[in-house]
């Protein structure tokens, strides 16, 4: 027996797979957005509205990652966007290998934007690089403004924070400014948009950001 020093992170094999996948997606001009949030934060409702607003300008496809069931994929398909259901087989997150298999099923090169709706969970998805070009997280008003303190990794690995369900702000003790400060402290380059997918408030700013991200990735 000999001793070999590795000093490599345990998820090194996934990091390598993710970097390769990201390179391929860049070359084929497809922006992959990894959407992460708790169950019930409004991921699918946000997607429905975003697809309705941007669906004519861009070819959009969605990968729904769930432990089981295909209810979300059916909702997306009813809007005319392509959708595939990726089952994680009991796992609490998507990794680069699972993402690649789902992309193959989707025929991704035909899309300008592919959105991966990750498993509803604020912990594990943050640990595994999926190969996405941008990471976007949702935090809904009913979840509370203290979440950046409880799930710091999710906030530090995201490019965008969408604070959703702002239409119910009057009914909750949610301090929008405090929440933004806490999130920015963890991640100074985080872009924050407060939106309501129901009323459409704030959706313009998010969709402008997304359009710019697609254009610069696919340029």
């Amino acid at each position: 027996m000999k001793i070999i020093e590795l000093k490599e992170t345990v998820t090194a094999s996934n990091d390598r797979d993710a970097a390769v996948l990201r390179g391929e997606l860049k070359a084929q001009k497809t922006l992959l957005v990894n959407l992460m949030a708790s169950p019930g934060a409004g991921k699918t409702t946000l997607l429905e509205r975003t697809i309705r607003d941007l669906g004519e300008k861009y070819r959009i496809a969605v990968m729904e990652a769930d432990v089981d069931s295909d209810v979300d994929a059916k909702r997306i398909e009813s809007l005319g966007a392509k959708a595939v259901q990726a089952h994680t087989g009991g796992m609490c997150h998507m990794d680069a290998g699972m993402t690649r298999r789902a992309l193959e099923e989707l025929d991704a090169p035909e899309s300008d934007l592919v959105i991966l709706e990750n498993v509803g969970n604020l912990i594990c998805p943050a640990e595994f690089d999926t190969g996405a070009g941008k990471n976007v997280m949702l935090l809904s008003v009913p979840e509370g403004d203290d979440k950046p303190l409880k799930y710091p990794l999710m906030f530090s690995t995201s490019d965008v924070l969408l604070i959703t369900k702002t239409d119910v702000l009057p009914y909750f003790d949610f301090d929008l400014q405090k929440c933004c400060e806490r999130a920015k402290k963890l991640n100074p380059r985080l872009e924050i948009f407060a939106v309501s997918s129901k009323t459409g408030a704030g959706m313009d700013a998010w969709e402008t950001w997304l359009s710019n991200a697609i254009d610069s990735w696919n340029a």
Partner: peptide, 18 residues
């Protein structure tokens, strides 16, 4: 479940090292 995911990647990383 979180630990399980990390273990699967640890095994894969080490398999590649071998």
């Amino acid at each position: 479940m979180h630990e399980m995911g990390i273990i699967l990647h640890l095994a894969k990383t080490l398999d590649e090292t071998c």
